[in-house]
């Protein structure tokens, strides 16, 4: 079964597009996009085990450090650059957003919404939130730059990125239209420079 966010991402990708997936993990998204959209896809990953997993899954993977930017890639050399559930774990958050919109004609960013009501309840109760989307303890989480929908849209304004479309989904994978910053656990943005 495909995660709801993968299907949403695929929806925004044109068939045969050239796609760069930043932080591609084991290549699940690219595998899906290759099958569903026949994309010419490349993933970037830093962890050796994930690089091996991507290769095993038949995905093109490039072992590089996203924190040092995408300087090796030409402007607009990809149709779409994807940052799927990686933004919140990056140190150079702003830099990678700017760079992905330089390298890609379009960007897709997904991240867990820190403003989701269950997270807010946990903070109100006095503990750091834990959920399916953020299953870590506060002391071992790789997520150092968590944000809400409002926060992310604020950063987009700051760097001059336009939000073309937005899909917000619930933990059950359903589209959330009302009070997305409160009721949505995962945000998927389509942005352009």
């Amino acid at each position: 079964m495909i995660r709801a966010d993968l299907a949403a991402i695929a929806h925004w990708i044109s068939p045969g597009a050239k796609v760069l997936d930043l932080g591609c993990g084991d290549g699940q998204l690219l595998t899906y996009l290759q099958q569903a959209k026949q994309v010419s896809g490349y993933g970037i990953e830093i962890e050796p085990e994930r690089v091996v997993a991507s290769i095993r899954n038949g995905v093109n993977v490039l072992q590089m450090n996203l924190e040092t930017g995408l300087s090796g890639f030409d402007d607009h050399s990809f149709d779409t650059v994807i940052l799927s559930q990686t933004l919140q774990a990056m140190k150079q958050t702003e830099a990678i957003l700017r760079d992905m919109l330089r390298v890609g004609r379009e960007g897709i960013v997904t991240f867990p919404n820190f403003g989701y009501w269950k997270n807010r309840v946990q903070v109100l109760r006095g503990t750091m939130p834990k959920s399916e989307a953020m299953p870590y303890e506060w002391y071992d989480t790789p997520n150092i730059h968590l944000c809400t929908l409002a926060d992310f849209e604020g950063l987009c304004r700051t760097i001059g990125a336009r939000v073309i479309e937005r899909i917000v989904i619930s933990p059950e994978g359903r589209r959330v239209n009302a009070f997305p910053n409160l009721l949505g656990s995962l945000a998927i943005y389509r942005i352009r420079a």
Binding site: K18, N60, L62, Q63, M64, G72, S77
Partner: peptide
């Protein structure tokens, strides 16, 4: 990485590992 870049420019399938 120069080789990888040239392959990407041609949309050729490539995986790259920096061990």
């Amino acid at each position: 990485r120069e080789i990888v870049k040239a392959l990407l420019d041609n949309s050729i399938s490539v995986s790259y590992a920096e061990i």
